[in-house]
Each structure stands twice: as C-alpha cells, then as structure tokens.
Design a binder for these strands. Structure first.
Lengths: 362, 362
DNA sequence: TAGTTATGCTTAAACGTTTAACCAAAAAAT
DNA sequence: ATTTTTTGGTTAAACGTTTAAGCATAACTA
C-alpha cells in the first residue's frame, strides 16, 4: 500500500515536471534529482554506473531520464572534466578521395571511443590553415590531426598547438622538424617502384612532374626518382625534373613544357593524380598515344584514374589505414594524461596500381 | 615616480604569473584579473569592449591577456550563454564536389559570424545519419544543416531536432513533410531543359535512369522527365524509366539493362553523374558511339564530367550558392532567439552544361 | 550645497556537470 | 554489545565565463 502511494506520488512529480518543462527547456540532472528526491550528484553517479549507487536507484534514474527526454549537457561535463571529447582535423580539402577516405576511417575509430571530429579545410592556403588552427584551439579540441597545406613552410602555428599541450598528429603532408607523430606512406620507395615499372616497360627517358621540394613527401618522391634513375643508369636531366603545384591546370602546363623539349621523354611520372590528369588531357588532345609514345603514371589512386581514357596507373596511398592509424595514435596520447610528443613515424607501404597508361606490352 | 613603481610592480606580478603558469595550465580571465588587481567580471567586460569599462583598463587587460597567451575557454562561455556557436552539418559524403563545395561556402559565411561547423557523413546510411544527429545534438550545436541520405524515409529523427528547438535547414535532399527551410535547385525544370536539349539534338527515344522515387528531388526529376516527354510528344515507355541508387556500379547495370532492350533508346538522361559515368563506361566498352548512337546527359556537374572521354553533359547545381544560402538562412534563425520553423523554400535555377556526350551535330 | 547622473568598477549568482570529502544507517565482525 | 566495515548516498566546491544588480566615486546640475 505504501509502495503504491509512493509510485503514484512519483508519477505525479514526474508529470508535473514534464508539463513544467513543456518541451521548452532541456531537462537537466537536477530535474531528475527533483523528481526522485535525491541529490544531483547521485543522479550523475547513477548515470555513470558508479558502484556506490544501488541498482534500484540506477534503474529509477535511467527511467526518469528517459521519460524527461534527458540529454546530458556536453558543454557542462566538458568544462568540468577539462576535455571536450572533440578532435580537430585539418585537411587541404575534403573533395579528394584520399582525404575523405582518411577522414571517414578516422571518424569511425574515434566515434567508437566517444570522440567527435571537427573537420576544417585549408584549401591549400597557409592563412586559412592558421585560421583553422585558431578555430580548433578556440573550440577546445582535445587534439588535432592534420595534413598540411602545400603553401605551409612556417611551422610556428603548429608549434602553437604543441605549446597548448594537446596532442598533434600529422599525416601525409608532415614535417620532420615538428617532432610529432606522423603517419604516411613510403614516398621514396614508391618512386622507386614507379621508375622500376617504367624501366620494365622499356622506357628510357623518364620525366618527373613533382610537387614542391620544400614539402617533405614531394621531396622524398623526387629523391626516390633521382636515385632510381641512377640505379638503372638512366640519364638524369634537369629539363626532365619539373616542380609543380600539382593542380590539373598546372599538370597541363608542365606536360606542354615537356612536349616542347627537343628531346621528349618517353614516360612521365607525375607526383599527383590531378596533375597527371591534366597531363593526360594534353597528350590526348595532341593525339600522342599513351602509353605507346609516352607512358604516364600518377600518384594517389583517385577513383577517376580508373575512369579516364586510357586508365591511369597510380600509387595507392592506403587512405583507410592512414585514417585508422592516425585515430589510434591520438587515442594513445589521450589515454595518458601527460602529453608527450614524440617523433613516432608510421610509414606504410604503398601499392602501385598498373593500368593502361603505362602498359606498353600486354 | 609612483607611476614607474606601479609599472614595475605590475610587471613583477605578471612575470610571477607567467612562471607560475609555466606553459602548464591555460591562463584564465581570473589570472588576468589577479595581475591587474581587478575583478574577473571587469576583465570579461574589457575583453568584450563593454562601454562601462575605461579605455585604460581595456588596454591593460588586452595587453596582459596577450602576454599570458590567454585564450578564452569556449566551453565555459558556451555553457554560460547557452549556445555553442557550433553548427552541425550532415551530408551523405564529402568526397563529391557538390557537397564539398557546399560545405566550403557554408563555412566561409558562418566563420565570418563566429560560428564553426562540425561536418559528419552519413555514407548514405540511415543508421549512420541517426547516429550523426545524436552526436550533433549531444555536442550542443546551435543548429543543423543537412542533406539526407538516400535511404532515409523515416523522418522521426529529424523531428527530434525540431523538438529540441534548434533550427534545422535542409538542402538538396530534403522533405516537404518536415516543414523546415530548404535550399535546392529546380529539379523539375532541369529535367525539362535536358529533354528539350536532347530533342533538339534529334533524339526520339529518351531513357531516364533516375534516383529513388521516394526522394523528393529524384521524384521531381522523374516528373520533369515525364512531363517533358509529353510536351514533345515522345513515347513514355516503362522500360525506358529505371530507378537506381545512382552509384557508378548501378549506373553500369542499368545501362546494360537498357542495351538489352529490343528497342534501344537513342539518348539516356541519368539523374546523377556517378551513375552516368558507369553508363558511359559500358557504352565505351561495347564500342557504342556516344553521342552518335546514344547521347548521354548526367546531373551534378562533377569535375570528372569534363575529364572523361567523351566529356559528359551535365547539370550544374550551384553548389556555392546553395552553401551560402543555407548558412545565411541559419544565421537568420540564429538572430531571433525564438525558434520558428517555417517551410521557406529557396529554389535556384540550375544550368545545363552541354559537353561532347550529347552534342550530335557540332 | 544638495541632488542627480555618469563612470567604472565589484559582488554574487548562474550555466550543468563532476568529484572529493563527508556522513548516517545498516550490516558484518569481534 | 561494541566496534568496524560496507552501503548508499549527501554536501559543497569546482570548471571558466557571463551578467544582473549593486555601489562607490567623480562630475555635472540647479
């Protein structure tokens, strides 16, 4: 009898609360506490399955929470706990398959551990990148995972992240000098694979449209290209090694530059797929047979490489694995409460995907 | 003299604070207050240029803030003010040029007004979409801008957003029933433009590989296609109207289905570029001349449409404008403190970009 | 000169959680 | 029967801001 009156009493309190809230204000831990006549602290503990709270109370709390449509206020708990459970991501752009795939896999791993990600794009602009860093720091992210813009040479803004004491993890476009964790592929070896493949196809004059030398990954690709040429006793000529921003447009220009040479190359290795596409367009337009007259290899394995005519050989960069590892690396840092940056490099092996554009004999 | 001692005194306090903080803990408003011997409230007001604070104090506060490398704690202010200055974005995927361009423009407008955006991807999955909504609500976003997954038919989760009292704005893939703001293009008219263009090229049997009928935009494209056929007295045959999920793979399949017909079409209008690409691949593989034997038109004006052979005619969806308008619409809602959802549709005119795949006579 | 107003702050409470420290009552141990 | 331990909580402070309300002091007004 007493039990029943109590239940009725509680139901009354509850419905009173519900009408009072009237879908207007969000229910808080305090509201739940009031309904059950216990302290907010007890509610908080109950919701977190604290061992010092009885099963009965936990059940009741969860029931009332559901009824009041309670949603924890993330801001409050983040403020109190000193962490936001947000991870900031900076990429040059999202509309490349590589970056969007990296992000997707990162998100998957991080979501599972209760983290959300804030994605920002630098559009390859250093200024935008700095703004993004400010934005992310302002939002109190618990860490930042980034791939640097092409333009970026000044690292002071990244030092700012480090000095804030939150983990910074770089992928793809990174910098040794920053002394932080890095996940990427073996660019130097990839160049070797490409040159070796082209040599096997019978190519003798291999050109390279590379990225900016000041960017580590492109520098490594260039070094790989040079060393591989040496290895196969091929001529290393200045006119065959061109620096580019690797956009489609610039790919066109640099290809034209190669075609204007007295002594044309019989193969071109382009350090990015978009630029390789530009190169291919120029070759197609001028009826230069690919791969017969000039073989072509790109870098990145963007989906369109399998769509163009002829299909474009390229390097697969293991985007999913990079995303997964970057996320796991962050989680490692997040586990320990003392932030210790370490130059821990995780270098993955890339795969050469041979397609029509470089298959001389079938 | 007194002035100088005071300055020295302050400098001492400051340096004491700096070493105390020692790059360890972040400086707060309270630290600044302590250095200057004023109240935290005064500091807060000074930083916000409150008129009740003297210029002298403001200057001093800002100077000390800079020296201590003070960064406002966004979580605290968000908690206090009851708003996070975060806008949630849900898109089916980011690696399509359309969505990434929408996002980029949205971001630009919102950043200028002090908002940051959290991007989430549904991967066309209803379940992921629901999880994303929960995530965003949990993160206390001030509003959500979304484009729905293909799978989504149940709108209860979106109702959940509305019931939370934060603005919801849909773009591209929206739903009338939700009764919220919507920004998109005129799909019905776009179909008309395409059919008209194909008729002008002399096509007589025009097929349509469309999206799911239950999605409003695809339904509109289908209706536009049907009505345009009527207008030009062309045969409307069931076998020429196919429903698809519009992936590249499905585009291949559905194209093959059309090729298997007794009476093949002489033009195919595909409601999405990726599916159109699949269709093109099948046609190229079987040496069916495009546009001579079969003309082809896609939808979306993805960059690759200008890369493939032959280049693909398509509809430009005004991504930048959509992003801009979605952001502005959110800001409109954010201005007024009372949230009032309205079915305010902003429909933009799309542009048909004619390329090789549908140019029969040049 | 008294009264009013403007200036430039301070005080204190609030936002919603979390958590260390404490405590009463019940259960177990001696 | 007394002490100890366990159970199931409570209290109060804290996280870093913002803001309404209050209050001296200075400056103007009549």
């Amino acid at each position: 009898m007493i039990f029943i009156t109590k239940v009725i009493y509680l139901l009354k309190r509850l419905s009173k609360y519900r009408t009072k809230l009237g879908n207007k204000k969000k229910a808080t831990i305090k509201d739940i506490a009031n309904v059950l006549n216990i302290s907010p602290a007890a509610v908080s503990k109950a919701l977190h399955d604290d061992s010092r709270i009885s099963e009965k109370t936990k059940k009741a709390v969860k029931q009332v929470a559901k009824n009041l449509n309670y949603q924890p206020n993330h801001l409050a708990s983040a403020l109190r706990k000193g962490k936001s459970n947000l991870v900031g991501v900076i990429v040059p752009r999202t509309n490349s398959n590589f970056f969007s795939s990296v992000i997707q896999n990162m998100e998957e791993v991080l979501n599972r551990k209760g983290y959300n990600i804030i994605i920002t794009q630098s559009n390859e602009s250093y200024k935008k990148e700095c703004a993004n860093i400010d934005t992310l720091l302002f939002t109190q992210v618990d860490g930042i995972i980034a791939s640097m813009a092409n333009e970026t040479v000044d690292l002071s803004y990244y030092e700012k992240i480090k000095s804030k004491g939150i983990p910074l993890i770089l992928f793809d476009r990174g910098e040794n000098d920053l002394n932080v964790d890095y996940i990427g592929i073996n660019d130097y070896e990839s160049s070797h694979m490409i040159v070796e493949h082209l040599v096997n196809q019978g190519c003798k004059r291999i050109a390279h449209i590379g990225g900016y030398k000041h960017t580590r990954i492109y520098n490594n690709r260039i070094r790989g290209y040079i060393d591989a040429l040496k290895k196969y006793h091929l001529p290393l000529e200045n006119e065959l090694l061109i620096e580019s921003n690797l956009t489609t447009e610039d790919g066109r220009e640099k290809m034209q530059q190669l075609l204007n040479l007295e002594n044309r190359p019989d193969a071109v290795y382009v350090a990015g797929d978009y630029a390789a596409l530009g190169a291919l367009q120029v070759l197609n337009e001028q009826n230069i047979k690919v791969p017969h007259d000039i073989a072509l290899v790109g870098f990145g394995d963007e989906p369109f490489t399998a769509m163009v005519t002829p299909t474009l050989s390229s390097i697969n960069q293991q985007s999913s694995e990079i995303g997964r590892l970057a996320a796991l690396t962050f989680l490692e840092h997040a586990k320990k409460d003392i932030v210790t940056q370490s130059l821990n490099k995780q270098i993955l092996d890339a795969k050469l995907i041979v397609r029509e554009s470089s298959k001389k004999h079938i």
